[in-house]
């Protein structure tokens, strides 16, 4: 049996998590709306840093390595997911029936093919 401190799976989870994080950052780079909104002469840093600031010796780095694109991309993505959940959950009886039929059909199909 396993004990309290047998936490081997955290290593697995860490590896998986890093892979997911890398994929996320690649994706977030595209989705991100940036960390900075500038209007008439103003410059507001939402994530608390200047995007245009160039760090000496690290000129080749672009802004997203600091993770702010990931942050905004995640926030927007999760927000959108919840919006979809909310919209889809309209509670029509026919929807419920349709989901039940689809579920059963999927299970049946899987069992017939691989069962």
């Amino acid at each position: 049996m396993f004990g309290y401190w047998d936490a081997l799976y955290f290593i697995y989870v860490l590896v998986i998590g890093m892979l997911i994080a890398h994929m996320l950052s690649r994706w977030a780079e595209k989705v991100s709306m940036g960390t900075r909104r500038s209007g008439d002469g103003t410059k507001i840093f939402i994530s608390g840093e200047d995007e245009e600031k160039v760090i000496p010796q690290f000129e080749h780095f672009r802004g997203y390595v600091t993770g702010r694109h990931t942050m905004w991309g995640l926030i927007r993505g999760i927000h959108r997911m919840f919006l979809i959940f909310r919209r889809e959950h309209n509670g029509l009886l026919t929807d419920y029936v349709a989901y039940l039929l689809i579920t059963t059909a999927v299970v049946l199909g899987a069992l017939v093919i691989w069962g």
Binding site: L100, T103, T104, A105, V107, L108, A110, L111, V112, G115
Partner: peptide, 12 residues
């Protein structure tokens, strides 16, 4: 097998 499919669908 088909019966099991119906069981799983209904019980899920």
């Amino acid at each position: 097998k088909a019966a099991l499919g119906f069981f799983i669908g209904g019980l899920l």
